[in-house]
Amino acid sequence: MTEKEYYNQVTNLMGEIINLSEVQITFVDEQEKQVLGAYCFGVLNGYSLERKINPIQIQGAMIDILVKIFNYPPSTSAQFCDFLIQCTDEKFHPSINAIIHKGIEGYYEIKDGKKESIQQVVNQIIKSVKYYSEK
């Protein structure tokens, strides 16, 4: 798989995730956007690790997705991506780590044709994060 094919595939996959989640990125608050970003990072990792993609290429793809799909500025995208990478260590941020792992599971659900659960899972994660952040 060439780099261009990889970027096209992951961009299409992220578009599918966002469509299935029914989250409108331009109309959600920052917290919801970050939750969806963490979930998408998990999906991206599931897809990429299965294909043995270089970690630098994964990082570049995630930054590109955060710029093009999530509409973050490049510097914010790079910082958020670095944060997500650090969150792959459960001890660093257990909650975001759990969301990333839900995204990895989401990738395998999509791969197995179980697309209907994506909206429910993403919405449940967002509700849970909002509930516990308001306490």
Rank of each mutant, 00 (worst) to 15 (best):
Y47F: 15
S48V: 04
S48T: 07
S48L: 02
S48W: 06
L49I: 07
E50K: 04
R51P: 02
R51A: 02
R51E: 04
R51N: 06
I53V: 14
I53P: 01
I53G: 02
I53A: 02
N54C: 05
N54H: 14
I56G: 06
I56H: 10
I56L: 10
Q57K: 13
Q57P: 00
I58K: 05
I58N: 02
Q59A: 13
G60W: 01
A61V: 10
M62E: 10
M62I: 08
I63L: 00
I63F: 00
I63A: 11
I63K: 15
I63H: 07
I63G: 07
I65W: 08
L66I: 01
V67Y: 08
V67K: 08
V67A: 08
K68P: 01
K68T: 12
K68Q: 15
K68D: 14
K68V: 03
N71C: 06
P73R: 13
P74V: 12
P74F: 05
P74Y: 07
S75A: 02
S75K: 10
S75Y: 05
S77M: 08
A78Q: 13
Q79V: 05
F80D: 07
F80K: 02
C81N: 11
C81V: 08
D82P: 00
D82Q: 15
D82H: 11
F83C: 05
F83L: 14
F83Q: 14
F83H: 13
F83S: 12
F83I: 06
I85T: 06
Q86E: 09
Q86A: 06
Q86N: 12
T88V: 09
T88H: 05
D89Q: 12
D89R: 05
E90L: 01
E90R: 13
E90N: 09
K91P: 00
K91S: 08
F92I: 04
F92A: 01
F92S: 01
H93K: 01
H93D: 14
H93A: 07
P94T: 08
P94A: 08
P94E: 10
S95N: 07
S95M: 13
S95V: 13
I96G: 05
I96K: 03
N97W: 09
I99K: 08
I99P: 07
I99A: 06
I100L: 11
H101C: 02
H101K: 14
K102N: 14
K102H: 15
K102S: 15
K102P: 00
I104T: 13
I104C: 04
E105S: 03
E105R: 05
E105I: 03
E105Q: 11
G106S: 12
G106W: 10
Y107G: 06
Y107I: 04
Y108R: 12
E109P: 00
K111P: 03
D112F: 05
D112R: 12
G113D: 09
K114Q: 13
K114S: 03
K114N: 14
K115R: 15
K115L: 12
S117R: 14
S117Q: 15
I118K: 04
Q119E: 13
Q120G: 01
V121G: 01
V122H: 02
V122D: 06
V122G: 06
N123E: 14
Q124R: 12
Q124W: 03
Q124F: 09
I125V: 13
I125S: 02
I125D: 01
